[in-house]
Structure formats: structure tokens, C-alpha cells
Design a binder for these strands. Structure first.
Lengths: 225, 225
DNA sequence: GCAGATTATTGATGTAAATCAAGGTCTTAT
DNA sequence: ATAAGACCTTGATTTACATCAATAATCTGC
């Protein structure tokens, strides 16, 4: 009952119901001709160690890539939102598996066709190289998150999501607490507690568990330093 | 004295003094024309956010790249051994700082010259792209290490060093415990204790603090799984 | 060889996050 | 509407690692 009191009166609904979450708008960093495909929630897009025949661009929805460890732990490598390109490997096989987090529309581009074109179109070759470089930068930021304390990891994650998400009053989190935990190297309990704590200190506000409003960006940025 | 007894009689010198550490031999993955430069131990090669004018290849010695966080923590991003190429950025500035771990000879190649050549030499462009992709894979393996327990991180680190080092009976660690700790997101004490423990269980043997013999690769691989 | 500095190890204690456990809330289907 | 299941939160306890502190080994120059 202390529990119920806390959750209904103070923590869970401190924001007007009018605040809506926005979904990101598709962007087009690369002029990609490809087949639009639909992937229902939780379906596999490709598997680890499968030949990397295609390159993917999210049109709508969200995607997670991950690796499974032998003992069942899962490391989520990245989240991809509308506009993002993923599945582009240097080698012949995928380094991770990919799944749709929610029902997603995804542009699927044949790798061989792309590479053939890149062979004589320098601009395209350059764009593909840039894609790899961006992915490297993203992964380096991920490393930087993983050496920090739980609160700092969550803060960094929220800022990243906000930066990449549609400009809206609040950030829609497409992924579950488990997904976030596996991305940040934490447990769902720690993620949940940390979010609650950030809410209690007024840094964020959760209108629902998947919709976060960043109320004090300065504080978050400080945690992310 | 328990201390002294332990360290002198059982743990510290269980291997014949004859076991020598090997240093890696220079390899040449890229035919790089560049100026050979000498960097004394602990000198800076480039700084974070500096314009990335050069690409570097280690000839001898060892290099660490790292980022400093606002509160003084240091994240070591990577170690580079003879043959390795580093400092190649997609953007115009370096994402990390780089320092020589030991006195090092390093080939320094002008980026603008390289890029100009790559513009009409497709093979070279391809090699440069591959470099970025390799770095990405390396960083992804680093992420995978950081979500694991201390013992697993150290095991993974040792296996990586062994794989990259010269074929020799034992692996020479060019870097300090602090460097290793900052790479693995641990403290020097935890790194030290973990190594001691691996030695006590017969998985490795330390002829000196910088020279490790992997006695049970299977056990290490299991930890690294 | 010895003094001082640097680096590494070890021990005692503290703490952030994991684990274990129980409810609560939201979603979906009947 | 209600039941079943997935997802999320919260509390109690444990634990892996950090921190604090001291000593030991190794390196460097005199």
C-alpha cells in the first residue's frame, strides 16, 4: 500500500496526459533502392554468422541487433530507428543477429548489387565507408557508456534516444526494460530503479513506462560527462 | 610473512627462468610509405579532438589510445602492437588521444596524400575501408568484454593479447596494470587479484608481472565464452 | 650497492548493482 | 468484462568489485 500510494499519487502520473510521445520520421541518408519488407514484432531479420546478403534501412518501427553468449546472457549491440541503416558488414557474415522490436517496415537492399555499383560510383563507395565509420563511432560511444555507473549509463542512453528520436515533447522508447538492460549491461531491476530515481529527483518524468520526458537535460548531460 | 611465503615459494616463480617473452614481429597489411618516427615511452602521439592529419603504423613498441572523462576516469580504447594501424578517423579529428606505452617506432603517413591516392586507386580505397571495418569489429569485441565479470574480462584480454602477440612461449604485456584496468573497466587491484587467482588455479603463470604464460587455454576460452 | 620513485600485490572494509522474491500494471484474446 | 500472460516496479538480501590502506617488488639514477 505504501507501494500503491507511491505509484499512483506521486511517481506514475506527474505529467499532464496531454504530453504525447512522438515517433521518429524516416530520413534518407543514402539513396537506397530496395524492396520494402514488413517484419512483425520480435521476428528475426537475420541471424548471427549468416551470410550478409543484404543491407537494411529502417522505414518505420525499431530494430535491435544482439549477440547471445554461451551461458544465455544477451548483449544488445545497437538499436536502429527510422532512417538508420544496419546489417552492413565488412566480412561475408553478420556479426550479430537482428530482430524487429516492434512491427517494422524495412528497406532491404541487395549487397552484391550495391557493391557492384560502388565499384564504379565513387560517391556511393564513400557513403558506404562513412556508414561503417559511423557505426564505429556509435560503438565507441557504447564502450564509453559501459564503463560508467548505472545512473550514468541510463542518462547517456536517454540522451542518445532523445537525440535520435523525433522532435517531440517526450521520447518514445520502442524497446523493453530487458532490451535496455541488455544494451547497458545492467539488469532490468537496476534500469527500472534508476529510471524511478531519476523521476523522483525531477530529472525525467515517465508518463508511461515507455514514454519519457527529459525535464532536466543539464543534469542528464552532467551524468553523461 | 604469509604474504612473503606465498609470493616467493608458490605463486611468483613456478616456471623455469628459461621461459622468455617474445615481442611481436612487424607485419605489413598495408603497403604504407611514411616517415618512421620515434616516440619515447609515455609521450603523446596525438590528442583527442586534434585534426587527424596522419595515419600511423606501429613498427616496434606499443601504443594505447584513450579518452579522458570529465571526472578524471580514463577509458583506454585500444592497444596497438607492431603491424597495427591506428589513428585513422572517418571525420576530420581524432576521437581519442594516443600515447606510446613503451619507446616506439612508428610509421607516420600523411592522410591527405593517402586519400588522394585512394581517390583513383580502388584497391587502396578498399584497404582503407577494411581498416575501419576491422576497427569496428575490434570495438564490438571490446563491448562484449565489458558486460562480463572481471575474471572473464581478464581471460578475454589475455587471449586477445596472445592471438596478436608474437608466437612465443609466453605473452609479453607491454602495458601496466593501470592500462589494463582502464581498458577493461576495472581497478588495478581487481586486475591484479584476478591474475593472481588465475595463477593459483593453474590457468596462467606469471614469470614476471609483465610476462604471462597461458597454461590452460581451454579454461581461458571457457571464461571468454 | 643504495635511495627514491614507480608499479604491483595483498588485506580489510564499503558499496553499487545483482539476485531473489513478490506484487502491480498493461495487453491481448476469449 | 475477465482471465492469462507479458512487462514493469519495488523490497530484502547477497555479492562482486571498488575503495582505502599498507607492504612488496621492480626500476632508475647516483
Amino acid at each position: 500500500m505504501l507501494n500503491a500510494a507511491l505509484s499512483t499519487s506521486t511517481s506514475r502520473h506527474p505529467v499532464p496526459a496531454s504530453i504525447k510521445c512522438g515517433s521518429p520520421e524516416p530520413r534518407s541518408p543514402l539513396s537506397l533502392m530496395g524492396a520494402p519488407m514488413r517484419y512483425p514484432r520480435n521476428t528475426e531479420i537475420f541471424g548471427e554468422d549468416e551470410p550478409a546478403e543484404y543491407l537494411y534501412q529502417v522505414v518505420s518501427g525499431a530494430v535491435r541487433t544482439y549477440k547471445m553468449l554461451d551461458d544465455g546472457r544477451r548483449q544488445v549491440s545497437a538499436f536502429y530507428l527510422p532512417g538508420d541503416v544496419f546489417g552492413f558488414e565488412a566480412g561475408e557474415t553478420h556479426a550479430t543477429s537482428a530482430e524487429a522490436i516492434s512491427d517494422s517496415q524495412i528497406l532491404v537492399i541487395k549487397r552484391s548489387a550495391l557493391m557492384a555499383r560502388a565499384d564504379h560510383e565513387k560517391d556511393l563507395a564513400q557513403q558506404l565507408w562513412t556508414l561503417t565509420a559511423r557505426e564505429l563511432e556509435r560503438t565507441q560511444r557504447h564502450v564509453l557508456l559501459l564503463i560508467k555507473r548505472a545512473e550514468e549509463r541510463v542518462a547517456g542512453f536517454l540522451l542518445d534516444m532523445e537525440r535520435r528520436a523525433a522532435k517531440a515533447k517526450a521520447v518514445e522508447l520502442a524497446m523493453s526494460r530487458q532490451d535496455i538492460a541488455d544494451y547497458l549491461g545492467l539488469t532490468i531491476e537496476t534500469v527500472s530503479r534508476t529510471l524511478t530515481q531519476l523521476q523522483q529527483t525531477g530529472v525525467i518524468s515517465l508518463s508511461s513506462s515507455r514514454c519519457v520526458e527529459l525535464r532536466n537535460r543539464t543534469a542528464l548531460a552532467q551524468l553523461n560527462a
